[in-house]
Design a protein around this nucleic acid. Sequence first.
DNA 1: TTGAAAGCGCTAACAC
DNA 2: GTGTTAGCGCTTTCAA
Lengths: 341, 341
Amino acid sequence: MAATIRDVAKHAGVAVSTVSLVINHKKRVSPQTELKVREAIEKLNYHPQRSARGLVTKRSGNFGFILTSDHFSRAEPFYTKIFLGTEFEARFHDYYVLLTTIEQQFSKRQIPRFLLEKNVDGVLLAGTVSTKIIEYIQQMGLPYVLVDYYPPSGNHSAILIDNCGGIKQVVQHLTELGHSRLAFVGADMQHPSMRERCQAFREALLERNLPVEDEVIYCMEGWAGAQAGQQAVPLLLQAKNPITAIVAANDAIASGVMRGLQERNIRVPHDIAVTGFDDVDFASTLQPSLTTLHVPKEEMGALAVRLLTDHIHGSVSEGTKIVVPVQLICRDSTVLPRPRT
Amino acid sequence: MAATIRDVAKHAGVAVSTVSLVINHKKRVSPQTELKVREAIEKLNYHPQRSARGLVTKRSGNFGFILTSDHFSRAEPFYTKIFLGTEFEARFHDYYVLLTTIEQQFSKRQIPRFLLEKNVDGVLLAGTVSTKIIEYIQQMGLPYVLVDYYPPSGNHSAILIDNCGGIKQVVQHLTELGHSRLAFVGADMQHPSMRERCQAFREALLERNLPVEDEVIYCMEGWAGAQAGQQAVPLLLQAKNPITAIVAANDAIASGVMRGLQERNIRVPHDIAVTGFDDVDFASTLQPSLTTLHVPKEEMGALAVRLLTDHIHGSVSEGTKIVVPVQLICRDSTVLPRPRT
DNA sequence: TTGAAAGCGCTAACAC
DNA sequence: GTGTTAGCGCTTTCAA
């Protein structure tokens, strides 16, 4: 049986409460007593037990991570990276992260168990989660941080992507390459990031006095996957003025667009250039490799945890938003690779 | 403040112990009292608190997942999937999974915190973890399951890959395609899976009366990544009898091999066929897409959790090994795609 | 600065 | 069947 705080106290010849003071760095202990206690702790290899401590402090040492099951199964690489980012940063702060998925639509019956059992000290929510669950967490008085999502209303702390800046980088890149007939393919317009990217595309065109034509700006129904991109291709090719570049709202759509083009023997980037957004793993292995915007996914997870711990310590005010920059990664889908010499 | 068991007891007009009996399905409660209690629970929206419960039962409701940091950062897609598999299955059994990484070599100083704080009821260990940490867990009396690793000695429960069967499938596939000059590229021979794959390759050749020539069986030093594959290519091409197919020990190595070949304008699969192992995400997006062996990674994670819970319930004996089958996925790196008609 | 003691919310003996 | 009660291992008043 492992040592308890009483064993340590006995061993050091002090009271239990003194040991507790030492453990918790409540500095009102004389150096010599502290030494005795530390020696006893070392000797007995003592470590306070989480549940006992949690029972009295009401702190579990865990964070919850809530994701809609939709996102998890389908946009796996993206949110998985965010989750792993939280894991690492959390451990650094001596927290563990409990992961759970919930259905898009809220129901009392599937409130995450870690909330019911008071097993988390804060919550991270990623993707388009229901407003109801946010409200529920607020009611519990738990601190929380949204990641890559911001609901229509309310004042929340969040880690967000600079979607607008990203799209503008891409448009600039393409115009610098001489493209002036740009198309856009988005999908899943429920997701604020998707809407922002579409909106930013229009703005970017306007800023450069390029024509904004609805017939080459597609926001597909349903999930933002490769299929959406593939389906958009025939529509885009019907445009009166032929397009020379396609800006996709994410990498999955871009891969579908490329496939659609290649099926029609349209060469990328020779005939039409293609860009993505997110820089997921497969972006670099696509053929041609995909020019895209790198979203620092792990970093977003880490930032979210940091913001959450800041909230717990009260060192930052609610409703803090952090917008992470994205970086243009130029690959072969826009720039012709130089022939090997 | 949330309701406690006393509130429920008071509300239902019974003793706390009765409420406890109801919660824990210890069926010695009369139907009418049970009903009263359940109503009170419902009314007050009561849920037992983890830490309070854990303090007395000595059960935390968590599993630990230990991975060497090496594997996590480098072979991310593979072990990440396994981890996600455990997450889902664990939640199904009302457990959460606490993830941690440790350095390859054991040190007292970095024993996972969840072990010290008695915050897990069982442990999953993935990849080449130190024998010391296994021993430590054994000493604690915690049940554990190894995933994709088996140490040289001892009797452990484990989820293992049918490496041998996989390699033999690949060799059969290649010989059926008419290849008779096969090469092998492995790396990271510390890892039992890697050793098994190499060994199986030799056996498979022998079984088919093909020549086993050391000059085309390479086990590279260091990490089993793309670089190892790329570096092996010039060595393989020096072989006296030219080879026609390369069996890589995993997909990462295979991708490096393909790159190395393509740099030399050797076409895959026209001139040389290439195969991988694992079927990680990028295998299908490589150009040409990679013929490989599908390892059911999430399933392995789920199986590990199931085996662990079985151990907790004592319904299975220690040292149970489950070998999961792998499935050949034929893609373009071995079979010429039919030209479109 | 240190110790004694109460109690966090729950389970599990043991009475009745 | 149900109630009473003693802790589980810790933190945190409150005295000394």
